[in-house]
Design a protein around this nucleic acid. Structure first.
Lengths: 338, 338
DNA sequence: AGATTTTCTGTGAACGTTCCCAGAGTAAGG
DNA sequence: CCTTACTCTGGGAACGTTCACAGAAAATCT
C-alpha cells in the first residue's frame, strides 16, 4: 500500500463556517440536524455547503465520537463455498436488514488467506467497526481471539467448539439430522448411507452424529463417506463411491442440498430411479432443493434469521443489554426425493 | 444507531510511552517498524505494549494520514442474484486477491434498499475508503454520482451506459453473444429463440443485440422472451413460454447459465431431447454449466479477472497512474448441449 | 582532534470533527 | 420591571495518531 498522489484538499467544516460567516459549531449543528439554530443560519450554512462542496469527514467524526456506526461481517469460507452455498447470501442479507434499520453500515470482510486473517483482525481491533458478526469461524482463528481480547461486541453464526464466552446463534444440526434420517427410515429403507462433509466444523460433526443416532443398530460405518466441503462435486463423487461400496443401497443422507444434488445426478446417471430405487434427503432447503427432479426432501434452515438474530445480538451488546445464545428451530420439508 | 454503554478506556500510545519511560514518538516508531530506534528502546516498548494491552487506534491513524488503506466493493444486486449468480463471488475473490497483495483491506458494501444506497454513498464520501470497485451499478445510482463528485478513485465492473469518465473493465457481451449464437446456427438449427434477461443493464441489452446480429434474416421477434433477472426460475418459465409459442423450436440462447439450466429442465420435462431435438447455449461458464446434463455449451467469462483488473484500476488511480478502460476476452466453450 | 555524518529521542503541530460551556440576546412569567 | 427560562452562537478542548523538526549522543571520516 503506497500513495504518491497528492489529493486535492477537501473542504472542511471550517471552510463552510467562514464561507457562511458563522462558526464551526453552528455548521456542525446544522449538519447533524440539531436544535437551537436559527432559520437564517441554517439557510446560510446550507448554501455555503453547496458552494464549497463540503462533505463530512467521517474519520474525524468517528475519532471524536469513539464509534464508527459500522458492523463487520466476517466470512471465512473456502473459495468454492462462496459460490455454492446460498446460505451465506441469506445470512448477509438478513444481517443487513436489521443493521440497516438501526442505521448501521454492514461491512463484509472476507478471509481467503493467512494474510487476510491478520489484516481483518487488525481491522476489527482498530476501532473501525463497533461490532462483528462472525460466520463460520474456525477455533484456530485469530479473529475470535482478537475479538475476545478487546471485548469487541460480537456474535457467531454457528457454534464453533472451543470458543466460549461469545454469544452465538445456531441451529441444532444433530437433532435436525436425526429427524430427517428417521423420516427417511420411515419410508422403509434399511441400507442407508451418508455423504458427510466439513467434519472440521461443528455443523459437519453434528449432522453426522445425528445420522448415527437415528440409524441406531442399522448404522454401518462403511456407508459413510467423508469430504471436506459441502459441494455439488463432492456429492457426485461421494455417491459414486457409496454405490461402489454397496450397489444395493436404498437411501442416502447428504450433508447439504448441494451435495444431495450432486448425489442425485450420480444416481440418475447410474440408471437408478429416485425415489423408487434410492431415497435421498438433504439439508438447508436452499434453492437447490426445488431445482432437483424430483424435488429434494430436506431440512429447512432459516438462514436469513440466523443473520438477523446474530446482528441483533451484536446490537444488544452495544446497548449493554443481555445477549443470550440462541438456537433456532428447523423443520423437515418433505418432497419427492424420498 | 445509539449507544448508551460506556466503553472501557483503551490504552493509548501515551500509556505505552509512560509505561516504557519513553516518548510517544519512539513508541510510534516501534509500532510502525521504522528505523532509528535502539534495541533497548524497542524491547522496552514491546514489553510495555504487552503489559498495558495496547492496540493501535486505526481511526486516529487514518485521520492524520488522510487515507484508510481500505477499498470498498459495492454490490447492488437484487436479492436473488446474491444467491444465484456465481460471478459475484468470483469477482469478489479476484478483487480481494490483488488488494490483499497490495496490503489493502477489501470491504464489501451491499445495497438492498434506497436507505442502503444513501448510507453507502456517505460511507464512500466520508474518507472511510481510499477507492471503490462498483459491481453492477445502475445509471440512476447515487453511488456513481457520489464517487464522481468527490473524485474517489473508482472502477466499474461492467459498463453501465450513461456514466462516462469512470474507468471500467468489461467483456464485449454483444460480440460474445453473436459468436455463440453463430456457433449454434452452425449446427444446422433454423428456429432459434432467446431467453433475454436484465434488459435494464448493459449486459442484458448487449447479449440481445448480439443474438439479433447473428440471426440476421432468421431473427423472429416473437421468439424472444424477456425477464428481469438472470435466474433459474425465469429460465424455466421462459422456455415453457417459448415452447408454447413455437413447439417446433430447435435452438435457444439463454442469457446466462442459470437461465439455461432452467430452460434445460423445462425442455426435458416437456419430453424433448437435448441436444437432439433442441440445442441450447448459455453464457458465463459458471459452475452451472458443468452441472447440467448434458453439459452446457456457453461463453466463458473470466469473472475473477474482472474483479482483479477492476481492483488494479483503482490502485492505479490511487498511485496517479493511467487507468484505461479494458475489455476482456471471452471464449466459446463448446460442450454437449448443442 | 576537529568536522561531519549517522543514529536516536522528544516535542509541537496537525488531521477534522464533536462536545461542552460561556455568554448574548429574546421571550415568557410574576 | 425584574427574574427566569429558553434560544442561539462562538470558541476551547479533546479524540489518538503521524510527521517534521530539533537537538543530543555516538560513530565515522579527514
Amino acid at each position: 500500500m503506497e500513495s504518491t498522489r497528492t489529493r486535492i484538499r477537501r473542504a472542511t467544516i471550517n471552510d463552510v463556517a467562514s464561507a457562511a460567516g458563522l462558526s464551526r459549531g453552528t455548521v456542525s449543528r446544522v449538519v447533524n440536524g440539531e436544535r437551537y439554530v436559527s432559520d437564517d443560519a441554517k439557510l446560510a450554512v446550507e448554501e455555503a455547503i453547496l458552494r464549497v462542496g463540503y462533505v463530512r469527514n467521517s474519520v474525524a467524526r468517528n475519532l471524536v465520537r469513539q464509534q464508527s456506526g459500522a458492523i463487520g461481517l466476517i466470512i471465512h469460507e473456502p473459495h468454492s463455498l462462496l459460490f455454492e452455498d446460498p446460505n451465506i447470501g441469506s445470512i448477509l442479507l438478513g444481517a443487513n436488514a436489521v443493521l440497516s434499520a438501526a442505521d448501521y453500515q454492514l461491512v463484509s470482510l472476507i478471509i481467503d488467506s493467512e494474510r487476510d486473517s491478520r489484516r481483518v483482525a487488525d481491522y476489527l481491533q482498530g476501532g473501525l467497526v463497533d461490532g462483528a458478526v462472525i460466520v463460520s469461524a474456525r477455533a484456530s482463528d485469530p479473529i475470535a481471539l482478537a475479538v475476545k481480547n478487546l471485548g469487541v461486541p460480537a456474535a457467531f453464526v454457528g457454534h464453533p467448539p472451543g470458543i466460549p464466552d461469545i454469544p452465538y446463534v445456531a441451529i441444532d444440526n444433530a437433532a435436525a439430522a436425526e429427524a430427517i434420517t428417521a423420516r427417511l427410515l420411515g419410508t422403509g429403507r434399511t441400507r442407508v448411507g451418508m455423504i458427510a462433509c466439513a467434519l472440521d466444523r461443528d455443523s459437519g460433526q453434528d449432522r453426522l452424529a445425528g445420522f448415527k443416532a437415528a440409524m441406531g443398530d442399522l448404522f454401518d460405518p462403511g456407508l459413510v463417506v467423508e469430504y471436506p466441503l459441502y459441494t455439488y462435486g463432492f456429492g457426485l463423487e461421494g455417491m459414486q463411491e457409496l454405490l461402489r461400496r454397496r450397489p444395493d443401497l436404498d437411501g442416502v443422507f447428504a450433508a447439504s442440498d448441494a451435495v444431495a444434488a450432486g448425489a442425485m445426478t450420480a444416481l440418475q446417471e447410474s440408471g437408478r430411479q429416485v425415489p423408487e430405487d434410492v431415497g435421498i434427503v438433504g439439508f438447508d432447503d436452499s434453492s437447490w432443493a426445488l431445482r432437483c427432479r424430483p424435488q429434494l426432501s430436506t431440512v429447512r434452515q432459516p438462514a436469513d434469521l440466523l443473520g438477523k438474530r446474530a446482528a441483533e445480538l451484536v446490537l444488544a451488546q452495544i446497548k449493554g443489554l443481555p445477549s443470550p445464545a440462541e438456537v433456532l428451530e428447523t423443520s423437515v420439508m418433505w418432497r419427492g426425493s424420498a
